[in-house]
């Protein structure tokens, strides 16, 4: 079975049908459709981080580097006034990001714990200042994407990226695929070794595994998906700017992952929706929303010991 927990199955059968029907209720309200789309894109990013932090035990504060890279890469490799194929460029961007992650991971993964946090942060800050200081990349203002890609496969086009509802469904599909992909990955034999390394790296080495290779592979996979999320973000808003690469982006993603339940993967969706939902509500209630947001996050992290997913599991798994 792909989902070995009841809670996960319940979440799956509640969230996706709801998300599928949502645009029907919000047909006139494109603002909400766009808002939900951007939350789903970020949830995809948080999910890739959640895999790294929660499943592999590799705590990084530089994951936003790949988020931003996804956007900048599209600007760099796509022609400016010509619609390219979305799927082809998804492939290109993921592959280039994977290659970058292979090199950076090779250096970063020689360290662990607090040192790894520092080094990933250093790399991300380097990327941040590189893009925000260079005129070619638009400096702090970033760059505009004038033409959105078209999405035809063999001449059949399913999504029109300029249509918010279509784009919403594309992002929902991406989120769905990513969740399924990570579940398959975790259930696989590769996932078995990843779990083993997370729980007891020393023992896993003693059993004959080269743990560095498994960590590197995980890092590359998560980074490529992080870049894909950044690419979607860029397509949604039609611009890319250095704030995508800022460490605060990594930081909030980490908070969302912890809030949702680290390592649960589907918790990333919960965490992102709760965080962004609160953000949205508080922002409209008061100017000092950050103060209340902070207090609420602290309270929630303390109440939900293993995140929202962990608390839900505690509630739902007992009765089985």
């Amino acid at each position: 079975m792909l989902f070995n927990k009841r809670t996960e199955r319940i979440f799956f059968w509640v969230f996706f049908p709801l998300a599928l029907l949502m645009p029907l209720f919000l047909a006139e309200n494109t603002f909400f459709v766009s808002k939900l789309t951007s939350i789903m894109i970020f949830a995809l990013f948080v999910m890739s981080l959640d895999y790294l932090v929660g499943r592999c035990g590799l705590i990084t504060l530089g994951h936003a580097m790949f988020y931003g890279l996804g956007g900048y890469l599209f600007w760099m490799i796509a022609p400016e006034y010509e619609a390219v194929n979305f799927w082809v460029y998804t492939f290109y961007i993921c592959m280039i990001a994977a290659a970058v992650a292979l090199i950076i991971g090779f250096l970063v993964l020689r360290t662990s714990g607090i040192y790894m946090i520092m080094i990933t942060l250093a790399f991300a800050q380097m990327a941040f200042y590189f893009f925000s200081d260079s005129i070619e990349f638009g400096g702090t203002d970033g760059l505009f994407i004038y033409v959105k890609p078209e999405t035809s496969i063999f001449g059949l086009s399913f999504f029109d990226l300029d249509n918010p509802t279509h784009f919403y469904y594309l992002c929902l599909l991406s989120l769905f695929n990513t969740l399924i992909f990570f579940r398959i990955l975790i259930r696989s034999r590769f996932g078995r070794v990843v779990d083993a390394i997370h729980e007891n790296p020393g023992r896993t080495t003693a059993l004959g595994y080269n743990i560095f290779v498994f960590r590197l592979m995980s890092y590359v996979i998560a980074s490529a998906l992080g870049a894909y999320a950044g690419y979607l973000f860029t397509l949604q808003y039609g611009f890319v700017n250095p704030s995508m690469l800022a460490w605060t982006t990594s930081g909030s993603a980490l908070v969302m992952s912890i809030l949702g339940g680290m390592g649960s993967i589907y918790g990333a969706i919960l965490g992102t929706f709760v965080y962004e939902g609160l953000h949205y509500v508080l922002e409209h209630l008061t100017e000092h929303w950050m103060l209340f947001m902070g207090a609420l996050i602290i309270a929630m992290v303390m109440v939900f010991k293993n995140g929202i997913a962990g608390s839900m599991e505690k509630l739902l798994e007992k009765r089985t």
Partner: peptide, 16 residues
């Protein structure tokens, strides 16, 4: 975990 090291397939990300 111990047996799989020898049996192989540890890089198979698809098979259960």
């Amino acid at each position: 975990v111990a047996v799989q090291r020898r049996m192989g397939g540890s890089f198979n990300i698809l098979r259960s």
